[in-house]
Design a protein around this nucleic acid. Structure first.
Length: 567
RNA sequence: UGGGGCGUCGACAAGCGGUUAAGUCACAGGAUUUUGAUUCCUGCAUGCGGAGGUUCGAAUCCUCCCGCCCCAGCCA
């Protein structure tokens, strides 16, 4: 146990998970010399999402907890699907999460030479052979889940012939798919992965890093375990579906007689009201259901980032959900809670009116302006205060006024009093309507004695509203987001053969006519705020000083909405 | 009739033969509040997929059964 000093910045809220137990046991027996070395091994063929964040936090977190190391390795064994743009995006996402791989950045393609040499070694040992069967034939020969497979007619070629054929594959003598190199294991194995898996295939495609140097490429199964071995990984953490592959990786490592990491599988993350499969995420982008990989409704790290989700909240989330081996679906409310908890502590409060309703304070002197002192964050006195301009005409939130309010409504209504946050108590005297009968303006009177927010006569005012001065506020666009899907589990292919039928038509609502307090014009993209009583928001990358744009990260908890809903 | 896993509160998840079966989210009450926010209390599994068995004692061990997930890419 040497994990006491390593986690000072990671409050150990998390209880030990089964991986900790396994590592503790390895450390106790000195299996890896007390060393803990993990890695995060993405394939650079798509954007990282919150499910990857679970793996990233796990792998880097393990290294931190045990005073070990964690590598970043790109598993780039398939040149037809991988691009270097993804490599850049992945680097950015991992560092945004706050992890540092300190130059230990590797690529499976770094190991192509070694992998090739090892393949030759296997051939020499009679443990691999070149097969001329086509893809369809190989499938046929593989058998089924319940029937054993059959040996390929080429399974017993001589070592010399295999060596020659493999060299000619490498030299480009054959076309794509004409030959493969297979391991010679057991065509009758219950585990399909052991039925002579393919090690190399011919792919006459340029690789994003090795260019045209190779026309044969290792399969993931052949590359992955050995890559871990080369890097001296002690614990290879992966998801459950690779459990069946472990015997194969073990077989390779033993046949080669090289360093043998311990593979440990855990359950991948599932989240309610979203999908976390590369294929489905890609479809959302390709078919224009979202604006891109970084659409704030996407569960991608770039989407969450743009939406305003702080990386600290993602860490907290990953700590809270734990790591186990049972398939599970985490309630998105847990993530929302983590976001609120962090933002509550850190986000400056500002006032923004999303659906404006003009209020004229008839007894407030025309042309008079007062600078009201406003605290920036009641949770953090060190955040200080700011001045907010107040005047005769202001905007309030449309939903903060009701002409005929229910009993528990303590906002504005004809004849009712409310407090304006950081300012005076006002009373609604008159409701101005247009020809259509819609409320277009409120005439109110303020009580000059209530600048403190308190009434000197001690009368109680239950409601407090946010507001923006009409003369000083800035126009802004605010984008409201809700769940991308209306169903809790849109990825359930039995229930929803086409997951796009679950898309939420109201997942994005753009409000172009909002009013925000003047200071918000200076908001830099990515900056996070609490808009008083409305939620947490972040300035979007589209934002400019002339036209600020904000994304709603998450709403505030709203017990009034619950009461109102119940009637 | 193949191989590999998993089943503890609505959702996650501790628990590893002796605990009143942790904690978190959600939910429901209540208190405080110039954000109906925050914060703070309180409640929320005589029960651990089911049935047997072992034991003084079982969520934890054994047996059988039931349910769910993964595997037949020259994808990762």
């Amino acid at each position: 146990m040497n994990d006491s000093k390593s986690d000072k910045d990671e409050a150990p809220r998390e209880t030990a998970n089964f991986i900790h137990h396994l590592i503790d046991e390895d450390n106790r027996t000195g299996r890896f010399g007390g060393r803990v070395h993990t890695r995060f091994p993405p394939e650079p063929n798509g954007f990282l999402h919150i499910g990857h964040a679970k793996s990233i936090c796990l792998n880097f977190g393990l290294a931190r907890r045990y005073g070990g190391l964690c590598n970043l390795r790109f598993d780039d064994t398939n040149p037809t699907r991988e691009e270097s743009e993804y490599v850049d995006a992945i680097r950015e996402d991992v560092s945004w999460l706050g992890f540092d791989w300190s130059g230990r950045e590797f690529f499976a393609s770094d190991y192509f030479d070694q992998l090739h040499a090892w393949a030759v070694e296997l051939i020499r040992a009679g443990k691999a052979y070149v097969d001329d069967l086509g893809a369809d034939e190989i499938r046929e020969y593989r058998g089924t889940l319940t029937e054993p497979g059959r040996d390929s007619p080429h399974r017993n070629r001589t070592v010399e012939e295999n060596l020659d054929l493999f060299e000619r594959m490498r030299a480009g003598e054959f076309g794509d798919g004409e030959r493969v190199l297979r391991a010679r294991i057991d065509m009758a194995a219950g585990n399909l992965n052991m039925r002579d898996p393919v090690l190399y295939r011919i792919l006459k495609a340029p690789h994003h890093r090795t260019g045209n140097r190779w026309c044969i490429y290792p399969m993931y199964d052949w590359a992955h375990g050995q890559s871990d071995s080369i890097e001296g990984i002690s614990h290879s953490i992966c998801t459950l579906e690779f459990e069946d592959h472990r015997p194969l990786y073990d077989w390779f490592l033993d046949a080669l007689g090289v360093h043998h990491p311990q593979q440990i599988e855990f359950a991948r993350l599932n989240l309610t009201y979203t999908v976390l499969s590369k294929r489905k995420l890609l479809a959302l982008v390709k078919n224009g259901h979202v604006t891109g990989w970084d659409d704030p409704r996407m569960p991608t790290l770039s989407g969450l980032r743009r939406r305003g989700v702080p990386p600290e909240a993602i860490h907290d989330f990953c700590d809270r959900i734990g790591v186990a081996r049972s398939n599970s679906t985490v309630d998105i409310a847990v993530l929302d809670h983590c976001v609120r908890e962090f933002m509550n502590r850190t986000a400056p409060r500002m006032m923004a009116v999303l659906n404006p309703l003009k209020v004229v304070i008839e007894n407030y002197p025309e042309g008079q302006v007062e600078e009201m002192e406003a605290e920036n964050n009641p949770e953090d006195p060190s955040a200080g205060t700011r001045k907010v301009s107040f005047g005769r005409e202001i905007y309030i939130e449309r939903e903060d006024f009701m002409e005929d309010p229910p009993k528990k409504f303590f906002r504005l209504a004809p004849g009712a009093e409310v407090r304006l946050k950081h300012a005076y108590i006002i009373r609604c005297e008159k409701v101005v309507k247009n020809e259509a009968g819609e409320v277009v303006q409120l005439i109110c009177r303020y009580d000059p004695e209530t600048k403190s927010g308190q009434a000197p006569d001690g009368r109680k005012v239950k409601g407090t509203l946010h507001w923006v001065s009409a003369a000083h506020g800035v126009r802004a666009e605010v984008r409201l987001y809700e769940h991308l899907f209306t169903e809790e589990n849109p990825g359930d292919e039995k229930a929803f053969p086409d997951f796009t039928t679950c898309l939420n038509p109201q997942s994005r609502q753009v409000l172009p006519e909002c009013w925000v307090e003047a200071g918000l014009a200076r908001a830099k993209p990515g900056e996070r705020y609490q808009f008083l009583r409305m939620g947490y928001f972040a300035a979007d990358k589209d934002s400019t000083a002339e036209r600020p744009v904000f994304n709603r990260t998450v709403t505030l908890r709203d017990t009034w909405a619950k009461i109102a809903r119940k009637g």
